[in-house]
Amino acid sequence: MSKIHVTTSVNGEEVEYLCEAQQTMLDVLRDELGLTGTKEGCSTGDCGACSVIVDGDVVCSCLMLGAEAEGRNVETIEGLAAPDHLHPVQKQFLEHAALQCGFCTPGFLVAAKALLDRNQNPTETEIRYWLAGNLCRCTGYDKIVRAVQDAAAEMRGA
């Protein structure tokens, strides 16, 4: 079983890894690259805990093969904050207490970042449907939606 050699960019840094054909991007991130901030909640694309951004689109890394990442641009939760400051959506999650257990949080943050990258003035409904693929069992979503709204406002400079 020969492995596949992949060269890709993860959080702006070129990385190389070997993976098996059936190995998912999620497994590659967690087991080969040690990036355990991306979480596995279901492995069927139903919970969004494994969300990453690939070439600008938010996707479930459990539904992508590691081999597919060749030449792509992958962003994970570990790349969201700059060394000296958090991304506005991270900051607002903390201010709003938009997390309880924190397990779904990386997926929500990555998905929210992908939304805010293309729309800094989303309506509540747009936020709710954009984040419908991220399950949270703790918060009832209220504070998460408010945090994203305020992050958008912060990014607009409002």
Partner: peptide, 15 residues
């Protein structure tokens, strides 16, 4: 524990 949990640093069972 907030910053750990919004940056992916927090270690859960499978990590």
């Amino acid at each position: 524990d907030g910053v750990d949990k919004v940056t992916g640093r927090a270690n859960f069972g499978a990590d």
